[in-house]
Design a protein around this nucleic acid. Structure first.
Lengths: 203, 203
DNA sequence: ACAGCTAACTAACCTATGTGAAGGGCCAGG
DNA sequence: CCTGGCCCTTCACATAGGTTAGTTAGCTGT
């Protein structure tokens, strides 16, 4: 069946420079992140990948773009990865081919949305939206229940993904908590009032 | 030869909702922009497309994502568009097929870079980087000379692309001008000191 | 039980960027 | 030759969010 290979948290899966693996990789379990690191240490998590997501080869090395940022993919959690996807889509996983196409689109659409988030939403809106989005995605894969989900991200990672400072992320999370929109419990995050949280997504 | 169809500035080429055209479109001349508009009017120009760029179908309608933003593609300039690209890549434009693949990647890479820009660069860095990027791209297509290029964007569009307010964009442009890094002349922008402008791209 | 580490949290202060409002230049249309 | 609109510009002020510098609370290994 081709068991996923296991990776511990914080392993580097691929690196923009090494023209290395040009194969799509399926996140079978766990979380991963596409990150860019600037020379001076600033970091941006471009995209968060959860189980079921597919990582396309990083087309990062376009001359001129990669110069100022090193783009890598790292695991966030301990994760299982399937790197033989391309081959297997012609074989045992053929039924997934169509789903794959949809997945590519979803990943790309999220990238567009991430641009809008960073460009035009306030910290508060961004944070709320991220929670709603992660919940919806994990829900779809049966990883979350109606009111809660795993969230194996440190506040620093949230900050790097949301384009904010850690301190400010903390402030926003406090606020959302005070408002009863999120609760942290046992390593999970609880979203007690999804409709209201969704409202918090807009101005 | 299949002449490009002409569009005047500010025409809507495609709209996220209408599952309409699912065909790639070549920008033969002029400029276009992929934009998202929020309910309350905030707007984000997700990507700027110039002659030679290819617009892939907008995979915007992923449930849940399109809800809060209307994604459309509009011309910025009067432009010529070729919408029969797919067909012609099998025919008269076959030699372009490989270039097309590279172009897709470049467009995608720019999207990644845009996330980093908005998430982690200051207004000043963002603006400088955009100018350098536009210049490099237009240079490659022979649309710019070594020191100057067309820039058919209002400051409001720049603001919407850079995730800033118009007023602030104006401030930054003033500053870049004072520093001798950019000059506006005859509807073009002059970049008298590209090395220094490139420096301004980093912190 | 202690040292050492990481992550969450706070507080005080600072600044980059946004907002609202207004004036001026320029150009197209009547 | 005026008029209205668009775009650029400036000013005064407001605020979201960053920075620095901690303190606190859990864990991990010893």
């Amino acid at each position: 069946m081709g068991a996923p290979r296991s990776y511990s948290a914080d392993s580097e899966i691929s690196r923009g420079e090494s023209a290395g693996d040009h194969r799509p990789i399926l996140i079978a379990s766990g979380w991963a992140a596409i990150t860019a690191t600037l020379e001076d240490g600033r970091r941006q998590i471009i995209s968060l990948l959860i189980a079921g997501d597919i990582l396309e080869p990083l087309l990062d090395l376009q001359p001129g773009l990669a110069v100022t940022a090193l783009t890598t993919v790292v695991t966030v959690d301990s994760s299982g990865l399937v790197s033989t996807l391309r081959e297997r889509l012609a074989g045992d996983l053929r039924p997934l081919a169509e789903a794959w196409a949809r997945m590519r689109q979803a990943v790309q659409a999220r990238l567009l949305r991430q641009v809008v988030r960073l460009g035009r939403l306030s910290a508060y809106e961004r944070t709320a939206e991220l929670m709603v989005d992660l919940h919806r995605r994990q829900r779809r894969s049966g990883l979350a229940d109606e009111q809660s989900m795993p969230l194996p991200l440190t506040q620093e990672m949230l900050a790097d993904h949301l384009g904010l400072s850690v301190v400010h992320v903390n402030r926003i999370l406090q606020q959302l908590r005070r408002e009863g929109l999120i609760v942290f419990r046992a390593g999970r995050i609880v979203l007690p009032d999804l409709p209201r949280l969704t409202q918090a997504t807009r101005r």
